[in-house]
Nucleic acid binder design. Sequence first.
DNA 1: ATTGAACGGTACGGTTCCGAAACGATCGGA
DNA 2: TCCGATCGTTTCGGAACCGTACCGTTCAAT
Lengths: 116, 116
Amino acid sequence: MSVILRPSQALRLWQRVSVAEVRAEAHDLSLRQMAILLTVYLDPPPHTVRGLAARLGVTKPVVTRALDTMGAMKLLSRHRDEKDRRNVLVRRTVEGALYVERFGDGIIAAAAGLPM
Amino acid sequence: MSVILRPSQALRLWQRVSVAEVRAEAHDLSLRQMAILLTVYLDPPPHTVRGLAARLGVTKPVVTRALDTMGAMKLLSRHRDEKDRRNVLVRRTVEGALYVERFGDGIIAAAAGLPM
DNA sequence: ATTGAACGGTACGGTTCCGAAACGATCGGA
DNA sequence: TCCGATCGTTTCGGAACCGTACCGTTCAAT
């Protein structure tokens, strides 16, 4: 059961969610930050800096900086991998889970009110 | 006929499109820029700087700068309103229409492959 | 003709991000 | 015990963006 969207619906959905996010000015995450955040929350762990960089096709410092920013926002947390202390494991937080959940609700609400 | 999405589907959709955009690094628009672009392309004209700022709940310089950036990318164009020369009208461009169309296709493709 | 309001743009100092390169810490095999 | 490879982080100069405040133009009403 795939989700079928027509072009006008797809773009309208994206507009509604974007405008709502800008108006709410909750966190003002960049597209890269959002991609990292959702990957951590949706893809199965563990998540390393290098793994995330490879997944998104960006350099390591990009991921490090995004983790700095979102870490300060308490959306994610970092922990040393005790098995291999070179690695840093990125984990979810309670605040982050709440933020992601609400963001998903926003998408659903925007989709529900979409004209056919 | 509204579009029904479940939470996991909504978030997965956003992740797929975000990751694809980051990987493609086509234009790297911020959330604000995307909201402005889609509003110009989806809402009925005319679009003024002040009107867009009010629509998104941001200040004028934010819109001006976004128009500078996306104007340089040829995604939008500015024109003086000849009826009231204080106004600047924001208009679509061929390149912008193409970009928006492809972006919509990306959303549709991501939605179509969504697990139930 | 003058004045006040409305419009978009600009100047400013500060913050954040960028990519490339170098760095220290850690691991694993010779 | 080295020593190369693999981590994540930091540094660097440069670019983009932020919000506040101010500026020049244009309109409309007096």
